[in-house]
Computed example of a mutant assay.
Amino acid sequence: MKKQLLFLLLAVVLLSSCATATLSEFPGVGRVKRYDFYSYDLPPAFDGFRIGFASDFHYESRLKKNDLNSVVRALKSVHADALLLGGDYRSKKGGNLDTLFAALSRVYTPYGTFAVMGNHDYDYCYSEVVEAMRKNHVRLMEHNSYKLMKDGQHIIVSGVRNPFDLKKNGDSPSQHFPADDFVILLTHTPDYAEDTNVSNANLVLAGHTHGGQVSLFKKYSPVKHSIYGNRFLTGWKENSQGTPVIITNGLGTSRIDVRLFTPSEVVLVVLHRVEK
């Protein structure tokens, strides 16, 4: 019986390595995944605007110090105009946050880097994350927003403070703008887009689920990181009001350092204006 269990465990580990292997040119980063987002509301000046998105580093879990150069290269490769970070920066095992954010600061974008916190950050290392962000010029969004200007036109980037504490947060920061503004809402968990009115947001970006870490057909996962089961597991989804939500698999791991059919990823979102 012990031999059978050992064989099964070995098979899972080997299968995990094979199943997450990709043709990525960035060792330690499974893939760079691109989404093209089309909208009537996007100002003409922002047609073709590129947003880099990375989340759930859990440094150092599966994501080690030796992988940081690959993460930086992957993020640089998307030629983003702005970089958004979705939270959960350090793992329970530890990981030097100054090292992580110093590496991320090497990813230059014309409009800068914007970030929200994840549940691990609130629980274990909030002050350390804040200080590391400050040192490395990352703009932390705790229920506030930034207006990105280009050729006299603008879009809004809004960030959610602790999306697991809805009572304290009140309404979504995306709701504080005129309906004709183009608003991107950054939140750690996709559940927030279902739990709260985000109808004024054109697009929501989220992480937290890790794609399940172990998943079949991008739909089924034994570990649920959402109260909605696998509904918001990974990829392009919509909430009940039809608002698009893009959920990344993230870069690190939590609980166990295994990925099966859920490659770690850096995300690129390219905005496109559609003429009415």
Rank of each mutant, 00 (worst) to 15 (best):
N69G: 11
F261M: 11
D191C: 07
P178I: 13
G159I: 02
M133H: 04
C125M: 11
C18D: 14
G170E: 12
D123S: 09
V274I: 15
L85C: 03
T262C: 14
L23D: 15
L251K: 05
S105T: 02
G242D: 09
A11K: 07
S105V: 08
R139D: 06
K76C: 11
Q241F: 03
L8Q: 14
P44Y: 06
K135C: 10
S70L: 14
R273D: 14
S77L: 11
K135S: 09
P178L: 14
L8T: 15
L23H: 14
S174H: 03
L75H: 00
D88C: 05
S91W: 05
R90Q: 13
R139C: 07
H58Q: 09
V198Q: 05
M133G: 00
V269P: 08
F101D: 00
V204K: 04
I51N: 03
A80E: 09
G152W: 02
T209N: 04
R62Y: 11
S199P: 08
A21K: 10
N96Y: 00
L104W: 04
M117K: 07
F46P: 00
A80M: 09
S199D: 12
R50P: 09
A103W: 00
V72E: 11
Q241E: 12
H137D: 15
L23W: 13
S226E: 01
S16G: 13
E142T: 13
S55K: 06
L15A: 15
P190A: 04
E128N: 12
P163S: 15
E60Q: 07
S77M: 12
P190W: 00
L85T: 08
L186F: 01
L271I: 04
V78G: 02
R106H: 11
S61E: 10
V130A: 09
R73S: 15
L166A: 08
S174P: 04
R255S: 13
Y122I: 06
K33F: 14
T262I: 14
S70F: 12
D47L: 07
S221N: 09
T243S: 06
F7G: 08
D180F: 06
I247T: 05
V32F: 08
N169L: 06
I155P: 00
D41F: 03
V72W: 06
Y220W: 09
L63I: 04
K33R: 15
T113Q: 12
P43Y: 02
D195V: 03
D257T: 05
T20W: 11
T109H: 10
H272L: 13
V160A: 04
P178D: 13
H58K: 05
A19I: 12
V157C: 03
F217R: 03
Y124M: 08
G30A: 14
T20Q: 10
N96D: 15
H188V: 01
N202Y: 01
N96A: 12
L5K: 09
L251T: 02
S16Y: 04
F46C: 10
M117W: 03
H58C: 04
G250I: 10
D47E: 12
E194V: 06
V107I: 11
Y111C: 09
K237S: 03
A115I: 05
A74N: 01
A206W: 04
T253H: 04
S174A: 15
L233Y: 00
D81Q: 13
L9A: 05
F37V: 15
H58L: 03
